[in-house]
């Protein structure tokens, strides 16, 4: 079993989608606790990939590729996990590109990097109405909400989302991070956000700080 879990990790390092999905399915079908598959197989591998990225041995596209494989494997694990009554790992993060804005590349990069730090990421997509973000916060009870916008004309929407969360009585329950090319530290402070990041790697650092934990470094 340990060997198989190790093989799952190796498949992720090798960015071998087929092998990773295959082994995951094998392990779940074979009756191994889904918690173990998730924790020791998938999550541990993502953390290690994060360490390798930090050391400069692995580049961002490789991190994103790994995150996509992680997602596909997790789709197999999660149903079994929920059935077994286990809980998902890591702080939940809800991400969205605000209403009126179709750019999501940065958000996708952040999402991938967040996974390497052990976060559970729920991506609502792009051009997301404020009400949907509020609803997602209510339902999923995330630790962090990440808002992205690339246009100066949609950046103001970030303020609108924060106000909506306040009005819904939810503001105090989440930490809010903002990002996107026109977004600055000053803007984040002005609208009462909890954090700002200029790129994906920085976003992870900020998120870890906000969630109150440190990235386990090698």
């Amino acid at each position: 079993m340990d060997e198989k879990i190790a093989a799952l990790r190796e498949a992720l390092y090798a960015l071998d989608d087929q092998a990773a999905v295959g082994i995951t399915r094998e392990l779940i079908d074979g009756g191994l606790e889904p918690q173990r598959v998730l924790q020791e197989g998938l999550a541990e591998a993502m953390l290690e990939i994060g360490r390798r990225w930090n050391a400069g041995d692995v580049f961002l596209p490789e991190v994103v590729a790994a995150a996509e494989i992680f997602k596909r494997c997790n789709e197999i694990v999660e149903p079994a996990l929920i059935e077994a009554g286990g809980h998902t790992l890591g702080h939940r993060v809800v991400m969205a590109t605000v209403k009126g804005d179709l750019h999501d590349l940065g958000k996708n990069m952040v999402g991938a990097m967040m996974k390497t730090a052990g976060f559970q990421v729920h991506d609502l997509g792009k051009d997301v109405p404020t009400e949907r973000i509020v609803e997602a916060v209510r339902e999923m009870e995330p630790t962090i909400v990440g808002l992205s916008s690339l246009l100066t004309t949609t950046v103001p929407e970030q303020r609108v989302v924060i106000q909506a969360l306040e009005e819904a009585g939810l503001r105090g329950r989440v930490k809010i991070m903002v990002g996107g090319a026109p977004v600055t530290e000053d803007w984040a402070a002005e609208i009462g956000a909890d954090g700002f990041a200029p790129n994906a790697p920085e976003a992870v650092k900020v998120a870890l700080r906000l969630a109150g934990s440190e990235r386990p470094e090698a």
Partner: peptide, 8 residues
Amino acid sequence: TMDLNSGS
């Protein structure tokens, strides 16, 4: 081009 490390 994209910075391979940070995605910027």
